[in-house]
Design a protein around this nucleic acid. Structure first.
Lengths: 387, 387
DNA sequence: CCTACTTTCGCAACGCTGTTGCCGAAGTGC
DNA sequence: GCACTTCGGCAACAGCGTTGCGAAAGTAGG
């Protein structure tokens, strides 16, 4: 019973040298449509979805969907699961993702802690652990600590799941703060720890673990996790914790920009010649917001955050703003109301049809970043990779 | 000699109902690859490009490129044009776009003027005219005026080109300021002229002219024109004239957002509780920048503009900032230097590898918007449409 | 229970895509 | 003049989604 045969998840798209979008061949076509179907299967969750519904949603013919689902079932990624009620004829057969067919590890590296999760294809957490971490201990020590943590968790989960769990492993996703190169998996720097400058984290961990590794900013991972969890097509995730950053999802894809630098929300200047920020500039949202929090003026902090959010909504015309991070979690209503008010005021002034963009607290909480990191590995399989 | 046979340019992609990305069939595959090849042919301009180069750039096999180019040549869209120097074997045959195979009309409607151009597939302007316009004359009068202007220009060009020019016409692109719905071609409102609220400009003009019509914001049209002209993959076009707006190009595609609202740059707040803007908010870039211009403090205007540009660069991690509009044209060095300084300062503080994002004056000048409007019709043919 | 009807879904043939193997065409270099 | 290199078309091919059709599996009515 071969599950997850070779080509699924690793789209073999021909890549042109340098710039210029890539041409598509039949393999790419198949990968694309298969990923689409898998994505809909995942979104359907335990409820499942029928072939004809898949056909309607994708625009493919029912026959094409049948062929695709047959292949996917043969690979063990999906299975039939009951039937719908009849509407006067043969009832539709419900298909469901087989979550155990694939697993990914997600790691969140923070300044003082590392949290590791294992999720299945549905994104359900099947294993979790965490421990303190000292980023200042040096790159090699941290890599070793993280590797041991991952291996420990894999051992635990393997013990409880057994039966080819290790073979179902797709890889490890790492989320951490600070600027980095997502494409090459290299950290630019970690604030306060110059020894990390330019460290090739992805390759170091991949070599040590013998697994594919993907590295991304924590806000991007969180945004990806929220996107997978079903949070619409275009939204911004604003994270307010020790710092202030954003993850942007545009059209179902995480927008990282050419150098993984997108989402630099905290140092958006909204107060020209304002108070000096840690970055050296003046009037950044981060310094205004965080000093207001320190002074206990949460309403003012929310107002400042809301001004930045309104700027962002106007620039990108996104459909939703999600708030997260420890500071928000401490007083969710204050921030949601404050940001909402600013965004709504802008919408009212501009008279956009459809009204103001909704503002909510991001579900998932602190574990969301690690889960999103795991999704970095699952994303290509469901057509959410990069492009 | 049938040029531009049915399916080219009108990609018949199956569309799923509602959300959910669309599945792709063989027709979509062919359209995609054909568009890719046509885009490269266009980019190659009069210099041309060989089949093997096309294969390298697209990642397709040489044989696939041969088939595609054969089809394209049969349709009259491309032709052979000389050969390269030999490198020890048979020299490569150079292919070139046949610009006369397709034409599009571009119209820029401004508060006091309408400017109309006709461009060929290369984007070369083959006809142009303009006349004063009073937006307050009412929607129907303006539609009639624009229609007459288009028909007049088509008559002129048809006289000079003759030979199936009218058959080569693809459609008419309209660029105008103010919020609108690009997808449905409906204006939301035109500042100062309430009678335009909700006017279905696209359908009205399409019915009147009997040609396909596409409507977009002027800044988006300008950005599209710049993108086609070869200005990189991700950039922002900032237009400073009677107002202040932006057009965003991300990954070679104009980013309009869900409601064509993206690029609302002018009402980005960068001075909390600052001076009141016409929009009702306080401290918008537009009011700060334009009042500085009025006071003759161009350096300050450039600094304000630069602060907003730096915010934008940080949020989206774009690769280039282009400046345009009458105010910029009046003192280009001041604005380029001022904005450059702000963007560079931000880049230095963040220590992004690759250095600061370049800032330049957008080429093309005032005619660029109308040319970009024409590109709205050509874009789908070259794979630059929406998605 | 049987028949008629509706609806789902797979089999088989098909058209079309890009791919592969091969060979002629068109140059260079000795 | 010959060997070699490189380009690019012809033909056969595998694989994609599509179409036509029929079996399977229900409901509705007698």
């Amino acid at each position: 019973m071969s599950r997850r045969t070779s080509k699924t998840g690793t789209v073999t798209v021909p890549r042109g040298t340098g710039r210029g979008t890539a041409g598509a061949n039949l393999l790419a076509l198949r990968s694309h449509n298969t990923a689409l179907v898998l994505d809909l299967l995942r979104a359907a969750g335990t409820e499942g979805i029928s072939r004809l519904e898949l056909a309607e949603r994708t625009g493919l013919t029912p026959q094409a969907v049948s062929k695709i689902t047959a292949r996917v079932r043969e690979q063990g990624l999906a299975a039939e699961a009951g039937r719908r009620a009849s509407t006067g004829g043969k009832p539709r057969t419900v298909l469901r993702l087989v979550p155990e067919a694939g697993h990914a590890v997600g790691v969140r590296i923070d300044r003082d802690e590392v949290r590791t999760v294992v999720v299945d294809l549905n994104g359900t957490v099947v294993g979790e652990r965490s421990r303190p971490l000292d980023l200042g201990a040096g790159a090699e020590d941290v890599v070793e600590t993280v590797a041991l943590e991952v291996e420990g968790l894999l051992g635990d989960v393997s013990g409880s799941l057994g039966h080819g769990f290790l073979e179902s492993l797709i890889g490890v996703g790492i989320a951490l703060p600070g600027p980095l190169d997502h494409g090459r998996g290299v950290l630019h720097r970690v604030t306060g720890f110059p020894e990390w400058d330019g460290f090739p984290l992805r390759d170091a961990l991949a070599r040590r673990l013998g697994l594919p590794v993907v590295v991304d900013k924590d806000t991007n991972a969180a945004a990806l996790g929220l996107s997978v969890a079903g949070e619409g097509g275009s939204f911004a995730y604003l994270h307010l914790g020790t710092g202030l950053g954003a993850g942007l999802v545009i059209g179902g894809h995480v927008h990282r920009g050419a150098r993984t630098g997108a989402g630099e929300f905290g140092h958006q200047v909204i107060q020209l010649d304002g108070p000096v920020c840690g970055c050296g500039d003046r009037g950044c949202i981060e310094v205004l917001c965080l000093t207001a929090v320190e002074r206990g003026e949460l309403g003012e902090a929310a107002r400042v955050l809301g001004a930045g959010a309104a700027n962002l909504v106007g620039l990108l015309d996104i459909e939703l703003v999600l708030l997260g991070g420890r500071t928000v979690a401490a007083a969710p209503e204050v921030f949601v109301d404050g940001v909402s008010a600013m965004v709504a005021a802008r919408a009212r002034r501009e008279g956009m049809p459809g009204g103001a963009v909704p503002v909510r607290v991001a579900p998932g909480g602190e574990r969301g970043v690690a889960e999103g990191a795991a999704q970095l590995l699952l994303a290509p399989m469901f057509g959410r990779g990069d492009g």
